[in-house]
Amino acid sequence: MKPVLRWAALALLLGVALAATAIDALPFKDAAQEVRFQNLTRQLRCLVCQNEDLSDSNAKLAQDLRYEIFQQMQAGRSNAQIKQWLVDRYGDYVLYKPPLKPSNYALWFGPFVLLAIGAGGVGIYLRRRAQPQAATGFDEDEDW
């Protein structure tokens, strides 16, 4: 390999390594705090790329929010307080698990309502199908 190429390859590898570590370059107090941070950011949505959670998004805003969450954790704020802080600014949408409240009832109970409608339909269908069979039973009686 030519020296230039070798240096280029080295620079590339270094770049990849830096990019890989950049996402978690926060100085956590201990492993437990890092686990708590990972768990919390996994429950939060990245607003820019909405199918990603905050923990593994590379968006600039996600980086800023991770840093902000990290700082609030250092300041001793609870997970609930940090979540509320985000909800106050970005709405319930930042939470992957939205809270149970009247404006969200359709989201929480809609599937069960649909299930109930389906079950009702099946029930009616089965009862209808059972009746003609009973009628043929009488016919068989007559034949006897």
Binding site: V48, K60, E68, R89
Partner: peptide, 13 residues
């Protein structure tokens, strides 16, 4: 420049 005030406004883009 840091975007920290923008977080308080709920700016996401």
């Amino acid at each position: 420049e840091s975007g920290r005030t923008a977080i308080n406004f709920g700016v996401y883009g």
